[in-house]
Design a protein around this nucleic acid. Structure first.
Lengths: 216, 216
DNA sequence: CGCGGTTTTGAGAATCCTCAAAACCAGTGG
DNA sequence: CCACTGGTTTTGAGGATTCTCAAAACCGCG
């Protein structure tokens, strides 16, 4: 993989790394830090689609299809590994193992999106919140060090609202209930998960065994 | 690709082709017909994730990851091309072009799921309905013949409800409004799209240019 | 004709939203 | 050191959307 690496990108929290409708020549993998990707409606309504952790691919869509149809914003300082879109054909020809890993990661992403869609479409507000926090807790768990997370998830209630498809006000009231049950604790700009198992049960969700995740 | 084909599968409408948590040894591509994939919560709430048309892959997740986490059900009689999960490694080693196409299709699927998530999370009921019908109309358009669709989409209002994350009752009232505007027409077990452009505008959605779709 | 699946309608209730404003906190500049 | 500012969390109140329950109408099919 080293042969295809073009460089590294360091960004701060709040930076927009790739933007909707852009045609940049690169795609990336996350080396460290955490981010989220989202889409906007014309009138500003925002839907967060998923969160990115170390090992995740960023911008594969723009590499294979023509352009990017979502944006990505950093939640922490990040370090990214840069690749050139043009070289992806060569990669598939010369390194079947890496090609397989890329597809593997894409399939994993699809599975997560399925899960989110189920949640937003069919779970109640409190179930959705429980699911999301359990999900993030699970993903962050093994990657705390690399993701640059001390103890709390670096998100705000606005992020939660835009992920769950709820208003900020109702999100706040819902999270408050989870806090009363002792499952989470909110800090300024952060969320501490206290009872991951409890959240999973409340959501009616079992994390699927991750399997071996290739780290590109 | 012929070398990897193991056979064909013919199914009727209503057949469950692959089931949640199954570990079958195969995956498929759709040769003709139309289907949908969905997830269930324990208490029976159902979320439809996406629809399958000729050219789409079915069960890639179970080929790369361990098991299937959603089910697929046929909406029309179907013809599927069967592949063996075990051979996928070999395919990646020997046929980079096909491997690339598989990833391309997976990326396309991811993009569609992003779109759906935006819709379910942030659009109003009528916008969601308009988006879904415009989307299905668009996908069916070039594939009417192969998908085995005469004129109307072979879905019920229950399918629409479970795709949009709404109740059947409210879905019915919403579709009724679209009908009053002359954009669609409902038959028994089917939906005829009369004004695709109008639906797109109402939803605030522009279909992305499909690009060249590989047909495996 | 009767049956199951689908569409339609009405009514009351629950969830969730918008508007508005206050409280809180970290960081900034004076 | 303190006041100010912008972002975030919190709360209340009324209203809109969407849900559940219930039942009727409709349709193709055996």
């Amino acid at each position: 993989m080293e042969g295809f690496k073009k460089g590294e990108l360091i960004t701060d929290r709040g930076t927009t790394i790739v933007a909707q409708a852009s045609h940049g020549p690169h795609f990336y993998t996350v080396l460290s830090g955490m981010a989220f990707r989202y889409k906007l409606l014309e009138d500003g309504r925002r839907q967060i689609l998923n969160y990115l952790f170390p090992g995740d691919l960023m911008g594969l869509q723009s590499a294979l299809l023509d352009e990017m149809q979502h944006s990505v914003e950093a939640l922490t300082p990040m370090k990214l590994c840069i690749f050139e879109k043009e070289k992806i054909g060569e990669l598939y020809r010369k390194h079947a193992g890496l090609a397989y890993d890329i597809t593997w990661i894409a399939a994993q992403e699809e599975r997560i999106l399925d899960e989110h869609l189920l949640s937003v479409g069919r779970r109640s507000a409190i179930e959705r919140a429980a699911y999301l926090l359990a999900f993030l807790s699970m993903r962050a768990k093994s990657l705390r060090r690399q993701a640059g997370i001390n103890g709390a998830l670096p998100i705000t209630q606005t992020h939660v609202a835009d992920t769950l498809g709820l208003s900020i006000v109702h999100t706040n009231k819902t999270l408050r209930k989870l806090q009363q049950r002792g499952m989470v604790r909110w800090l300024e700009r952060g969320c501490e998960i206290l009872d991951e198992t409890g959240l999973q049960e409340l959501a009616g969700w079992e994390a699927s065994p991750a399997g071996r995740r290739p780290f590109i």
